[in-house]
């Protein structure tokens, strides 16, 4: 209520000029985003209904829903769709679960905490292509990778992670990139927790676990929903990590929708099919967006 009053619409001369000024200030951003989201969408829709292959000019003309038919009946598509969802969900669970615990850990005072914290958030600044290369070669390479060396050191046979568990491995790499982001936000949230509230809980006899469960976790709700929102935006469109590490393989074991469409468009030059995939990806993104936006909308009113 207080916030609403503080930011009640300030009046210029009249409500109408305020409205007009507000609209004028908003319109450049809205207009270009409108163009940016509508024009390519319409073009994609159009191509998706065409026979259009860059290397086969004899194939052209109206395709109707053929492209969609091929795509939706293609087992690769279902596989890619499933992979996309597994990737998003897996990374969200790992990064938020891990970050919640790490936020509580790095909220504690200990020697060199500042430096440790900087180390933890560092992966966020690494570009996806680099982190993918880093993990694929320096860390997980079956012969020269550090992890393989460690396994050999304790008498185990090194595993070719990317060949044996491609999707899991990609998920771990992406989680490594996004964990810091979640830690950054959740740590700030934990630190913003009112000290008196914690002390009151302690006076009430709450142990560390009860304090975490009943005081800290509910307090993190809003921050977690923001993390979910931002991370999902990026996780739905993971591309570089897959392209660099597994190229979607073996087979389509680690192909997500983004990579499937990419391989159709640029590797098989099937513009029509790729566009149909694009439309489907957009539809899926919108379904996810509706749920997400619902969940996060509360935060925007704060």
């Amino acid at each position: 209520m207080q916030a609403v009053l503080e930011h009640s619409p300030p009046a210029g001369a009249t409500a109408r000029t305020t409205k007009r000024t507000g609209f004028l200030l908003l319109s450049p951003s809205v207009l270009i985003l409108l163009v940016w989201s509508i024009v390519p969408l319409i073009m994609t829709l159009w191509y998706s209904l065409q026979n259009y292959n860059l290397v086969d000019p004899t194939l052209h003309g109206f395709a109707g829903i053929d492209n969609y038919w091929y795509l939706l009946t293609d087992p690769d598509f279902l596989h890619a769709l499933l992979n996309t969802l597994v990737l998003v969900a897996g990374v969200l669970v790992i990064s938020i679960g891990g970050a919640t615990l790490l936020a509580v850990l790095y909220d504690q005072e200990f020697f060199g905490r500042g430096i440790a914290r900087i180390m933890v958030i560092s992966p966020f600044f690494i570009m996806p292509t680099v982190s993918a290369l880093l993990w694929k070669n320096l860390m997980l390479h079956p012969i020269y990778g550090v992890y393989s060396a460690m396994m050999r050191a304790v008498g185990l046979t090194p595993i070719d992670w990317l060949a044996r568990f491609p999707l899991m491995t990609v998920m771990m790499i992406v989680a490594w990139e996004w964990l810091p982001f979640a830690v950054l936000i959740l740590l700030t949230a934990v630190q913003s927790l009112d000290g008196e509230q914690r002390e009151a809980a302690r006076m009430d006899g709450a142990g560390p676990i009860a304090r975490f469960r009943y005081i800290i976790l509910p307090h993190l709700g809003r921050a977690i929903s923001v993390v979910v929102m931002i991370e999902t935006i990026y996780l739905l469109t993971i591309f570089a990590e897959i392209s660099v590490t597994t190229a979607g393989g073996p087979g389509v074991a680690s192909t997500n929708l983004a990579y499937l469409i990419y391989s159709r468009a640029l590797l098989q030059f099937d513009v029509g099919g790729a566009s149909a995939g694009g439309v489907v990806a957009i539809v899926i993104a919108n379904i996810v967006a509706i749920f997400l936006v619902r969940a996060v909308a509360r935060n925007l009113e704060a």
Partner: peptide
């Protein structure tokens, strides 16, 4: 609020979906 949410939703369009037209 609707405008803001719409803006954020444009960000959710997978770039690959509009790669060809762009």
């Amino acid at each position: 609020r609707g405008t803001l949410l719409w803006m954020l939703s444009t960000r959710m369009l997978p770039p690959v979906g509009v790669l060809v037209p762009i």
